[in-house]
Amino acid sequence: MEVPILKQGDYLIASIQSALTDADLSQLREALVERVGRFRSRGVIVDVTALDVMDSFAVRTLRDIAHMARLRGAETVIVGIQPEVAFAMVQLGLTLKGIATALDLEEGLNFLNRRGKERVDRA
């Protein structure tokens, strides 16, 4: 199941619709990294609301996405992690250190906008 990626201004929004296989996740990573380069995006939002579980492979892929996007100048926000999913993740020992998280898509966009503004202010 391919994850749809939406381009909205400077941002890319990937909203996961259903459970993903490892291959789907890897494909999402490739597609996002390629598009960040192509569109010179400033931000990436990955919406995981629909995921009812996140294991080490999924977390690793999200970390890779954030890392590679950053190298290309984009900030990544993971949005929509469910309470139970978060609880299982921390018990597994999985964290998203150094990666921004937000409650939902709206909050994720707010975060990126703020970041953009801070950057402009500093410049």
Binding site: D52, V53, E84, A88, L92
Partner: peptide, 13 residues
Amino acid sequence: IGDQTVIAAAISE
């Protein structure tokens, strides 16, 4: 649901 998720995560690993 919390434990369902925990079990699903363990199975996934």
